[in-house]
């Protein structure tokens, strides 16, 4: 073994092996994936504001806690309607002369995945308030607050976007809290994070490792499951604004507890608001069209409103999925 005593031969061999493997497992796959994928036809490219918002997202290191990938495993179904595809990332190009591409897939989920946040949480007011002080909307959150994306002003100027901060988190001097351009851009970016529709939904890869429902007490367990569903659906769709206790946030999001709309014997208005959104009350933020955005089925809406109508002391009659279906059709 002469070559192990010759430093040139030894290190050149080691380098050659390493370089060969590098080309095979990194460079060639990277180039192939870069060249063989393009954005989906349904995907919207980022607006100028959203692009600037992405830069704010980048520079504050949001990727440290938030992923942007829906894996093809059943547990990730809550983050998107289908697993992420290479095509979803194909639009990411080099940021600028100084900075590399940012696909922002992330490796830690200390906070929720944001692949589809634009659909899951479309309310601008919620996002602004949440950025200003996360714990004002989600009490248990450990996300950093970003007050430097906001200014305090004694008087509003034209074009200012004021955020409605609940009591206890508002400015101690009674000043108004106004979103800066960066904050609005960041929210524009978050709102733009939406999973594009596939031309043919069947082309999406399957979610693997799906839990099979337990067969044993299917008959008795069914009813229970539906009741549970209402609470779980509420926590996913409504809770961030209206809160777990249904009391909303004073000055930002209205309470559902004791709300005449929720308790009305005729659920038409309630279903209308859930499906199409609502912006009739100045003192509160805008309600997004949760039902439409999330493609909620009548059964799901029925479960949600039955949960709302029977919790926190609310007591109104149950609404069946069939009734909901009728109302939705009549609203169209």
């Amino acid at each position: 073994m002469d070559f192990i005593n010759d430093h040139k031969k030894l290190f050149l061999t080691a380098f050659a092996l390493f370089a060969f493997l590098t080309i095979m497992v990194a460079i060639i796959p990277a180039i192939q994936n870069q060249n063989n994928n393009s954005t989906l036809p349904g995907a919207e490219s980022l607006s100028e504001d959203a692009l600037a918002g992405k830069a704010v997202y980048l520079s504050n290191g949001c990727v440290a806690c938030h992923t942007q990938q829906v894996r093809n495993v059943a547990m990730d179904e809550v983050w998107g309607s289908r697993p992420s595809l290479a095509a979803d990332y194909a639009g990411n190009k080099r940021t600028d002369f100084w900075r590399n591409t940012a696909t922002l897939m992330g490796t830690e989920r200390t906070g929720p995945d944001l692949t589809n946040i634009g659909n899951r949480q479309p309310s601008v007011d919620w996002h602004l308030l949440h950025l200003y002080q996360p714990r004002s909307v989600v009490a248990q959150s450990i996300m950093p607050a970003y007050p430097w994306l906001f200014e305090t002003k004694s008087k509003l100027e034209k074009g200012d976007v004021e955020i409605k901060v609940p009591e206890g988190f508002s400015d101690s001097d009674g000043n108004k809290i106004v979103a800066t351009k960066e904050a609005l851009q960041l929210v524009a970016y978050l709102k733009a994070l939406k999973q594009a529709k596939l031309y043919d939904e069947n082309l999406a890869p399957d979610f693997l490792y799906r839990k099979e429902p337990e067969l044993s007490d299917a008959s008795s367990g069914e009813k229970k499951d539906k009741a549970l569903n209402g609470k779980a659906l509420y926590s996913m769709q409504c809770q961030t604004c209206h809160q777990l206790n249904g009391e909303g946030l004073k000055g930002a999001f209205p309470p559902l507890k004791g709300s005449p709309v929720v308790l009305d014997d005729n659920p038409e208005k309630l279903i209308d608001i859930i499906m199409n959104g609502y912006d009739a009350r100045e003192e509160y933020g805008v309600m997004p069209a949760v039902g439409k955005n999330g493609n909620l089925k009548p059964e799901e809406i029925s479960a949600i409103i039955n949960h709302e109508r029977s919790s926190w002391g609310n007591n109104a009659r149950k609404v069946s999925p069939e009734e909901v279906k009728k109302i939705i059709e009549s609203l169209k």
Binding site: A26, I27, P29, A30, I31, N33, Q34, N37, A86, Y89, A90, G91, N92, K93, R94, N100, T101, A102, T103, M105
Partner: peptide, 13 residues
Amino acid sequence: PAWQNGMGETIVQ
């Protein structure tokens, strides 16, 4: 930067 667009960035990462 030659192989860093889209998924390329993730593979290299």
